[in-house]
Design a protein around this nucleic acid. Structure first.
Length: 276
DNA sequence: CACCAGACCTGTCCGC
DNA sequence: TGCGGACAGGTCTGGT
């Protein structure tokens, strides 16, 4: 489910509901999803503390507590973080429940249970390698055309896998990578080092555009994804490539194809995205 | 280093 | 209807 636009939508939708509220009870229905520290210490670090800030880095959602602890969620494939007002039903597959000071709850739900939670002291943050080694964010000052050209230069492998690598650029996942490559007119099997200057410019603009559009649409809901209010996104209605195999290209009418690249389902237009 | 398969889990869909 | 297999938005590990 959740790539950067989905996590950012969750962050924004949760903020007005939970910022400034205190955690008064924690139910660990599935302890195994707590990665750090031990379940007992996890509860001890968070209980009776107040959520001060909601942040996001790549696909990580980070709640900053008043005692300097960071409550960190990674939703993997099917995780959800949902705000439940008092006396409203929980989402299905609730795994960790934080009861808040006003009778509402913050519920972590996850069908496939791949998601991970952490309660980290500042000096422990480097332990989360995936977080510590994230590349720059699309739409940020650090993500520039010069940076993109520099990391593409001379690289082998496939551009699709390259864009999925979070240490290159933070936040892209399978949907938005397929979309960015479509908009840039680049075949997913091309090597990063073969991307021309003109193509790099298009790719740079496309990465920023698909992320911005995804956020503006409140994320992409194929099946599980919901925002912090339990609502679906609408970006699935504005896709060009992902999930459109067998359907006509919205540019040229050619049937969109689906192949496997780096083990991931990959959708592209064989006419708009040629492999030379 | 590139690249793959497998692992972690559950649910859904498709073909027989 | 039932069953088996493939597949799903992510990442990590281990092998070649």
């Amino acid at each position: 489910m959740p790539e950067m636009p989905e996590i950012e939508t969750i962050r924004r939708s949760l903020e007005p509901h939970i910022k400034g509220k205190k955690i008064k009870k924690i139910d660990l229905l599935l302890e195994r999803q707590i990665q750090w520290p031990t379940p007992g210490e996890f509860v001890f670090r968070l209980l009776f503390h107040t959520i001060e800030e909601l942040e996001r880095r790549g696909k990580y959602l980070i709640l900053k507590m008043d005692n300097n602890i960071s409550l960190i969620f990674h939703l993997r494939m099917t995780g959800q973080v949902c705000y439940c007002p008092p006396n409203t039903p929980m989402p299905g597959h609730a795994r960790i429940i934080f009861d808040l000071s006003d009778g509402s709850s913050l519920v972590f739900a996850d069908t496939r249970t791949f998601g991970t939670l952490y309660a980290m002291k500042p000096e422990e943050l480097p332990q989360i390698k995936g977080l510590a080694e994230l590349g720059p964010e699309p739409l940020s000052a650090e993500f520039t055309l010069e940076y993109l050209e520099k990391i593409l230069a001379g690289k082998g492998g496939r551009i699709k896998s390259f864009l999925l690598d979070q240490s290159n650029i933070a936040g892209l996942g399978n949907i938005y990578v397929d979309e960015a490559l479509f908009l840039a007119g680049i075949h997913p099997m091309r090597s990063p080092g073969s991307i021309t200057g003109e193509e790099a410019e298009k790719l740079f603009a496309s990465v920023n555009k698909v992320i911005a559009d995804g956020i503006n649409d409140g994320g992409t809901t194929f099946r599980d994804y919901r925002d912090g209010n339990g609502d679906k996104g609408s970006h699935q209605d504005n896709l060009f490539a992902y999930g459109r195999d067998g359907e006509p290209c919205r540019n040229c009418g050619t049937i969109i194809e689906k192949i496997r690249v780096g083990g991931r389902g990959t959708h592209y237009c064989p006419v708009c995205q040629v492999l030379e």
